[in-house]
Write a protein that binds this DNA or RNA. Structure first.
Lengths: 168, 168
DNA sequence: ATAATATTGTTTGAGTCCTAACGAAATCAA
DNA sequence: TTGATTTCGTTAGGACTCAAACAATATTAT
């Protein structure tokens, strides 16, 4: 069985309530929500890699970078890293891997000698054109148990969570 | 600014709708939901590491393993890996790291010579007793923008998503 | 009892991930 | 016009991550 699939949050909640945290100021609902967010993310990442990505020498992170490039076209490195939610050091490694496989290109900035511009090659574009619908179909498969109103409600709540740290 | 913080899903949706995927069978709502789940996970992982974990030589993954051990007590490796949502190979590495820092112990199984049992040391227990409330407070901070009914609705929807792959 | 099969934890290799330090290039200061 | 500061991308080091191969042990079949 793939890792991270089972929903054991109920068990954990009972377990933890019965053992350590009765007295502490712990909120089990918040814990369950965040921990299930991680489970979904892990499950989606692993499943998409096994089904579609790894056979094309793509990791999920590599796919994300290529996807952002496919959507935005040319892009500067620091923007690309921010958009993908990774550090610039990590991006260097991923970009090198993708370049090695001929899926993207590095170009130097015409004015600024420090910056570099990254863009997909034709091979990268073609591959993304084939893979993106499959990934999206998996995304649809994941949320197929939700009504349309629930789905937009979920999206809205996730956006609220994302903004919870705007003014720490 | 930490990576993966900004919620750019709206921008991306417009962008993608305007460029590649008009004709394809693509559902932008599903895409936005899944992609924001990843953003929340990345944000939480990085923030908790920077604020609480790294100064104690703990990664988020190491914390998770130690936490499961703290909740369940002794545990066999293969169960532990499944509960943490990681592969057994990955678990070996994390357990070795935690053992190196004196936070957990490996014990061999009395009957079965293949299996091993993992448990937290006193140092591990003490550290977890101090850290867990802090992590939970961060979890509460993340969902503070949601009503109580919304929070349980979120947890319910995530559970539905987790079960979406039960019968593929 | 012996052989074939299955399971458990480890190792291996490629890749991702972070922070911190680094060199190169641009900008700012005086 | 030097010098200090800032801002890029890269590198270094340590850790996590997977799949696949592996050795040791246990189970099943004949």
């Amino acid at each position: 069985m793939p890792p991270g699939i089972r929903d054991t949050s109920q068990t954990i909640q009972e377990r933890i309530a019965a053992t350590h945290v009765n007295s502490l100021d712990v909120d089990l609902d918040s814990m369950a929500a965040i921990s299930n967010i991680f489970r979904v993310a892990v499950m989606f990442r692993n499943l998409s890699e096994r089904r579609f990505l790894l056979k094309h020498n793509l990791t999920f992170s590599g796919f994300t970078v290529l996807w952002v490039l496919w959507v935005f076209g040319k892009m500067e490195s620091y923007q690309l890293a921010e958009e993908c939610g990774i550090s610039k050091g990590t991006l260097t490694g991923i970009v090198s891997t993708l370049e090695k496989h001929g899926l993207i290109r590095r170009i130097r900035h015409p004015q600024d000698g420090r910056r570099k511009i990254v863009m997909a090659t034709d091979r990268g574009e073609t591959l993304m054109h084939r893979l993106f619908p499959k990934i999206n179909r998996l995304e649809q498969e994941f949320v197929r148990g939700l009504e349309q109103t629930e789905l937009s409600s979920l999206a809205r709540m996730l956006r609220i969570i994302l903004h919870s740290q705007d003014t720490p």
